[in-house]
Structure formats: structure tokens, C-alpha cells
């Protein structure tokens, strides 16, 4: 067993354990913390694949910025334990075995029919320079469109989250 495989299995185990813990926990703050663990372990997987810049962005943007937003909202709304109704208990009883069956089926098909040629550690060096070349030449138009998307998202978030009285006051002025 090579070191590469051992590292892959270690990070993968953290990923799966965090994802299952996200489902098992009833308090949203615990789910958020296990999701951060999943994202940090995924950054390790990206490093194994040679995508250094993607790994750094994963930690900074996903595990950093987006999850801080989630934790902030959980704290702001003082979210407590989730309550279950009869319908949601039925969903758990049917959903968990269904998910297990589905993922076993997908794993079986992928392991059976996809190519088994190995991916070397750092097979494709994704250094910032090469990615910037692609991003600012070939993908320039999508890049500009995403900047417009971000602007719209900022304005939408401000409008949605501002208090209704504040909007009313702004209209009167």
C-alpha cells in the first residue's frame, strides 16, 4: 500500500465520517462544524490530486467564508434542536436504507465499469499561473458574468435581509 493510497483513505474516512455526522446530529451548529471538517479533508484530497490552488481556495472560501456565514446565521437565529413530525420519521425510515442501496449500487457500477488506471499524486499541477491563464483567456466571458452574478447576489441579500420597516422608510424619503 503506497503512501498516496494511505493518505487518500485517511482523508476520505474523515470526509465520510463528517458527512454521516452531519446527518446524525440534531443541533445545526454540530452539523455545521462537521461540514467544516468535511471541507478541510476535501482540501487534502485536492492536494493529493495536485490541485494546490483549488485546495487553498477551498479552505479560504468554503471552510472560511461560506461556513462563517452559516455559523453566523445559526447564532443570529438562535437555532435549536430540530423537532420531528410523523412524516419526517417515515422519511428517515425510507430514506436512509434507500440512500445506502443507491450509493452501494453507484459504487459497484463505478468500480466495475470505469477505468482503473491510477491517477498519480500531483498528476496535473494546478498552480495559480496556469489557472489564471485559462481563467482570463478562455473563460473570460463566464468570469465576467460571475462577477455580475455576485453583484446581483449582494443586492438580493441586502434587500431580503433588511427589515421591512427600513424599506418602508427608504420609500418615504
Amino acid at each position: 500500500m503506497s503512501l498516496h493510497l494511505i493518505l487518500f483513505l485517511a482523508f476520505g474516512a474523515v470526509c465520510v465520517a463528517g458527512a454521516v455526522n452531519l446527518l446524525a446530529q440534531t443541533h445545526p451548529i454540530n452539523s455545521a462544524l462537521s461540514l467544516i471538517a468535511v471541507m478541510a479533508a476535501l482540501a487534502g484530497e485536492y492536494l493529493l490530486l495536485g490541485a494546490e490552488f483549488v485546495a487553498a481556495v477551498q479552505v479560504i472560501v468554503y471552510a472560511g467564508a461560506i461556513m462563517v456565514l452559516f455559523v453566523f446565521t445559526i447564532m443570529l437565529l438562535n437555532a435549536g434542536e430540530e423537532e420531528h413530525t410523523r412524516g419526517s420519521r417515515v422519511a428517515i425510515m425510507l430514506g436512509v436504507p434507500g440512500m445506502l442501496l443507491g450509493s452501494i449500487l453507484v459504487a459497484w457500477v463505478v468500480l466495475r465499469h470505469s477505468g482503473t488506471e491510477p491517477v498519480a499524486a500531483g498528476a496535473l499541477p494546478g498552480d495559480p499561473q496556469a489557472i489564471a491563464q485559462l481563467l482570463f483567456h478562455e473563460f473570460l466571458l463566464p468570469f465576467e458574468i460571475t462577477s455580475v452574478l455576485i453583484l446581483i447576489a449582494i443586492m438580493g441579500a441586502v434587500v431580503l435581509a433588511s427589515k421591512p420597516e427600513a424599506v418602508q422608510k427608504r420609500k418615504e424619503h
Binding site: A19, I92, P118
Partner: peptide, 26 residues
Amino acid sequence: MVPLSYYLVLSGILFACGVTGFLIKR
């Protein structure tokens, strides 16, 4: 050296966990 299919299986497991959480969480 890790086969490509291992990465795909891991990504499939994460996706399945996400779908399940979407369905069973309240």
C-alpha cells in the same frame, strides 16, 4: 497511486449523504 474510480466513489458517497440530509432533515 489511487485509481480514478476511488475518487468517484468518494464523491458519490458525499453526494448521497447530501441528498439524504436534504430529504430527512427538518
